[in-house]
Structures are given as structure tokens and as C-alpha cells.
Design a protein around this nucleic acid. Structure first.
Lengths: 342, 342
DNA sequence: TTGAAAGCGCTAACAA
DNA sequence: TTGTTAGCGCTTTCAA
């Protein structure tokens, strides 16, 4: 069966290819009646547009903007690298990806950046979003301008973003709890919980999931009051040291945020507590080393490369109006121990 | 900077675009001297071919063939579904993917199928390969005919395949051992090991990795003699029942092969042994249910969707002579417990 | 509101 | 051994 083209559609509908193109891309300036004729021809022929030809013919590139954290931690750095990598890759295929960085924890500056981005005629925007009313408004306003928005790593569920490329953080917290509980093997004692900040939706969710599972499934473990450390290694370290000092029956620590180097330093300066079960997030050079050394028992991971590529695929599918393989776009909660490091 | 095209190259090299095209695609009929001139122009301009335009202009589709197991187990079925799904997806982009099934454990029939496939002018072949001399020969012969070959799920390392889309099975076995050992929490006892067959490279490797880690790290666990069950649920079940019957101090079971339903049945009919730690491979409806129910503690997974799509991307990159993001093509060893199920 | 026609960058048939 | 040229299926002026 020969491929059905826009020509076939135009012939069947009795109009020119230009008109079919206008209908296909929802461009204005076509009578409702004509639109109807074209659409029924499309249905009749089961026409599928050819995105390769479309990309080739467009005069300008498809343009996306990624708004990422400027932070100096390993995960943020890795995310920026991954975005840079696909940006280069996609540049060969008529897709331009710009990257902007800001302090995504500062709602005001993030909001402003999104507003700026809105003035630049991007086809799509991916943003590591803070769940804040101003940010939500900015996302919704982009959407209303016809810009496709996906959230990355951290979501704003109540906004009009079309997709969230990130993990289920409460499931991640539950996973950490199950591992810690099982590794404890029935012993009784305390479980420490360190988190970044209660303003970050993902950290709260992890904390919630963790408490839920420990409470229900491992009653022999008592969770210590959460320490807030704003992802700063020094503060993480101080919190961990305090826990170790104050609780001789400490069985394990779950660190739900960033700045894990601090945790590792604290642990490695306490050789007597070798059996402590520590679980942290994100595979980085630090946590990888700690896993191999045995300082950390397990790492819960989200793959920033997968997240970045997934965001691009989703934005692209929207820009070109073609279907996605959604199954591919689910971001897995990775569990790494010493033996399955990539 | 305007895009550099084949036209620019032809002008700089002082030849026609047809000649540049011949050089780019290594087609015969160009004097060595001319090839040299064109290549230096390409380097000078840093020309990057446009794969979209190339795909559009080709008269025939790019064609791949996937040779998959005909087996009736969930993993094989899932793999076939995933291949069917991308086949449909790629059909829209001028890529045809044919699928053939055979008993991949029967070296002779697999070899014959690969030979047949070789007569059909495919651009690339993906195969779930048995590590056998005949199969290796067939792969090498395809390669020599100019067909790109990638192995899928199970590798033939000594062959000329350009890529293996699958997991590191000995690392998978080590991961299973670490989890089992840690979940045992210092208890002493027996660890059962059930495997498919010693003819399958992946099963031997898993077994090897498992024994290595248990031996080195968990001396309190004694591994029982391996039971070979050829991935048949009934035989898996019989093996598990025998272990349970014969060893009252059985701490856990690692099932390295397929047919896990059998293991689950055996376990669920032995309610007194609730604390048994079982680890199996592949997330399927059966193992998912068993994880939720608590019958199985952890599942080591390879994502057949990722494997299938990765094979397609690798074949496509070779067919179009464009670069890959290799980082994306590494297949992870997934660890699933009840809490991080996708 | 619609149509005609010139590309987009490459491939491939055919001619030289 | 090399060159000319007509497409591939779509977008985008520009004209009607």
C-alpha cells in the first residue's frame, strides 16, 4: 500500500495542499466548512502526517528552553550536563534547546525567569519547578500562550503542565524505609531522618512515605525527629554527627535530600559504627564511592539523563503533534547497592 | 551560521552532489583521489549530514529484523509485545521492523533462521542469541554481508555483533546475593539456588555472581547444590518444594531463571515459612503480585521495553551513520521491592 | 479564504 | 568514474 500523503488528502477534499496544511496545523484563515471537508478526508484516508518531511520543510528550528537549578550539588550539575548532551544531539535534527539556570528555590526569581521565557516564542519549556503559587501561575500562563510545559524532577501537580518527568517521591521514601527496615533484620532501635527543607514538595513526600512504612511495617524502629538541613553538606554532617552522638542505639539513617557528602564524612569519621544502615538519594561520584566502600547501604536514584531525554521527547511529540510511547516516559525509582552500579 | 549542506561540500570539493553522496555512503565507483578530496572538504567544513532529509529521500524503508524466542513465558511474551509496539511506532518514520520467532534454545533452528534472514537484505538484525558456535558463525556471516547485528537479552561476546542490549548477568547474580544476604540479617542457614540450564550463558553468569558474593560476604549462608529446571514452572515448583522439605534451616532461595510461577506456587502453599527470603528475576504480572503479597522479597529486572528500543536506536544509528548517545543504551539492573513497583 | 509554486537536504535513476 | 535532475512530503511565501 502506497503511503498516503497530504496530496492525496487535498485531492479527496478538493482543496489545495496549502489548505490541508493549514487545517493540520490549526492555522487560522480557513472556513469552518472547508475544515470539515479536509478533516473528513483525513479520516477517510486514515492519513498520518510525516514528521520527517515536516521537520525538513520548516524554515525555523523547533525551540525548547530548559530552566534548571543553578545549584552546585552533584545532581544539579549532572542534570545540566545531560541537558547539554541532548541539546547537542538534537541540534543536528533541527531542534534547538536553550538552557537557563536560576535559583529554583527562590520562587520570585523562578517566576520571573518563566515570564521572560514566555516572551521568546519557544515551542516548549521544561522546568525544575518549585511548588509555589507564583510559579504555578507562570506555568499556566505559558500554557495559555500555547507553549507546552513539562515539569522536571520536581512537579507542580495543580498546574497546567502537560507532563511531569520525575519520580514518585513518596514511593521513593517508602522504598528507602523498606530497605532500611529489612536490612535491620529485626533489630530494635532508632532510625534517623534528615531532609532538605519542608518547602520542597519532593522532600516532604519522601519523608511522608518513609514514616508511613516504618510506622506500619517496622514497629521496632523509632524515627527520630526530622532534621532540616537545606541540602547543605556541612549541616547534613552536623545533623548526622549529632544523631550518632546522642543515640547509641541508632540503627540507620535515611537522608532524603541533597548534600550527601556531609553524611558520608560524618559516617567515615565514626569507624565504630560500621553496621549503621544508611540510605541516601542520587547516584553521584560521592555516593558511588560510599556504596563501594560500604558506608552507604543503598542509594535511591532518579536518572537525570532519562529525565532530560524524556522531557525532550514529550515536548517534541507535542510540537510535532505525533504520538508518544508513554511507557517509555515513566521515570523509574532506581535502587542501587554496591553490586548493580552502572 | 547557516547550515552546511551537501551542496557546500560539493562546491568546496569541486565535484557534484552525487559524488559527495557516494563518498558519504561508501558507495563504490569513486576514484580514491576523489574520495580524498571530498573527505577533506567534509572535514574542512565540519559537515554533518542531515538524517531527516536522507530518510525522506530514500526510496525504500530502512528494514530491521528481530529474531525472538517463541517461548510461552511472560518475559518472552512481553519482549514480543514491546517489539511490536516500537515496530508500529517506527512504521510512521520509514522504518520497517519484522519479527520472527523460533526456539532460541535450539541452536540449529536459530542458526537456520539467521541464515534465512541473511538472504533478505535487512539493514540490521537484533537477536536473542544462544552462545553456540553455529549461532556465532551465523552472526559473523551476517556482519560480513554488511548487516548490522545486535544481540538482545543474551549475548555472544565472541561474535562480531556491534552491540549487546542486555544486562550484566554476573552483576545481577551478585546483586541478588547481596540482597539475600543483607535481608538475612546475620542469621545462619542454607541458601537455595535454582537455575534454568547450564547451556544458557546468562544463567551461568548469574549463578556465578551469586555464589561469589555469598561465599565472600555471607559465610553464614551455605549454598545448596544448584537445581537445573529448564525454566519450566512445574520443575521450579518441585525443586522449591524439595528444598523446603529437606532443609528446615533454609533462609532463602534465589531463582536465577524463568518459570517463577512455580516458585511462587511452592511458597504460597507453605504458609509456615513466611520469613523465607526469595529473590527472582523479571517483573511480570506473577512476580508483581508475589512482591505485593510478600511471597517474594525482591525482583531483579531487565526492562524488555528499554532493551527493544535500545536495539532499534543502535541499529538505526548504524543504518543512518549518525552518532548515538551511548549513555542511554546502557541497560540497568533494576531492583524492585514492593514499594518501587512501576 | 484559498491556491500555486519554490524550496528544505538528500537519494537515485539516468545520462554522459 | 562522474554529473544532472527529478523527486521524497511537507511548509511557507506570495498572489489571486
Amino acid at each position: 500500500m502506497p503511503k498516503i500523503t497530504i496530496n492525496d488528502v487535498s485531492r479527496v477534499a478538493g482543496v489545495s495542499v496549502a489548505t490541508v496544511d493549514r487545517v493540520l496545523n490549526r492555522r487560522p484563515g480557513v472556513r469552518a466548512q472547508t475544515v470539515e471537508r479536509v478533516e473528513s478526508a483525513i479520516r477517510e484516508l486514515n492519513y498520518q502526517p510525516d514528521r520527517l518531511a515536516a521537520r525538513l520543510a520548516r524554515s525555523r528550528d523547533i525551540r525548547f528552553c530548559f530552566v534548571l537549578p543553578a545549584a552546585h550539588n552533584s545532581f544539579a550539575a549532572r542534570l545540566r550536563e545531560e541537558v547539554t548532551a541532548i541539546a547537542e544531539h538534537m541540534a543536528r535534527e533541527r531542534v534547538t534547546i536553550d538552557m537557563r539556570v536560576t535559583d529554583v528555590f527562590a520562587a520570585a526569581s523562578l517566576t520571573r525567569m518563566l515570564e521572560d521565557v514566555g516572551r521568546e516564542a519557544y515551542d516548549g519549556v521544561a522546568v525544575v519547578a518549585l511548588d509555589h503559587p507564583g510559579v504555578r501561575e507562570a506555568i499556566n500562563s505559558l500554557t495559555e500562550q500555547g507553549v507546552t510545559v513539562v515539569t522536571l524532577v520536581s512537579d507542580v501537580p495543580s498546574s497546567k503542565r502537560v507532563h511531569y518527568a520525575g519520580i514518585d517521591n513518596s514511593a521513593a521514601g517508602r522504598t528507602a524505609a523498606s530497605l532500611l527496615g529489612r536490612f535491620a533484620g529485626g533489630r530494635s532501635g532508632k532510625a534517623g531522618l534528615i531532609a532538605g527543607s519542608t518547602e520542597l514538595r519532593d522532600h516532604i513526600e519522601r519523608q511522608f512515605g518513609f514514616e508511613q512504612v516504618i510506622g506500619h511495617e517496622f514497629p521496632k524502629l523509632k524515627i527520630l525527629p526530622v532534621r532540616q538541613v537545606r541540602d547543605e553538606p556541612q549541616r547534613v554532617e552536623a545533623a548526622a554527627r549529632a544523631m550518632l552522638r546522642e543515640h547509641s542505639d541508632l540503627i540507620g539513617i535515611y537522608h532524603a535530600g541533597g548534600g550527601t557528602q556531609g553524611l558520608i564524612s560524618a559516617l567515615e569519621s565514626e569507624p565504630k559504627r560500621k553496621d549503621l544502615i544508611c540510605i541516601a538519594h542520587e547516584l553521584t561520584p560521592h555516593t558511588r564511592r560510599a556504596l563501594i566502600k560500604g558506608t552507604i547501604a543503598a542509594v535511591i536514584n532518579q536518572d537525570p539523563g532519562h529525565e532530560a531525554r524524556s522531557a525532550v521527547r514529550v515536548l517534541l511529540a507535542h510540537a510535532e503533534n505525533v504520538p508518544l510511547l508513554m511507557e517509555q516516559e515513566h521515570i523509574r525509582i532506581g535502587v542501587f547497592i554496591r553490586d548493580n552500579l552502572p
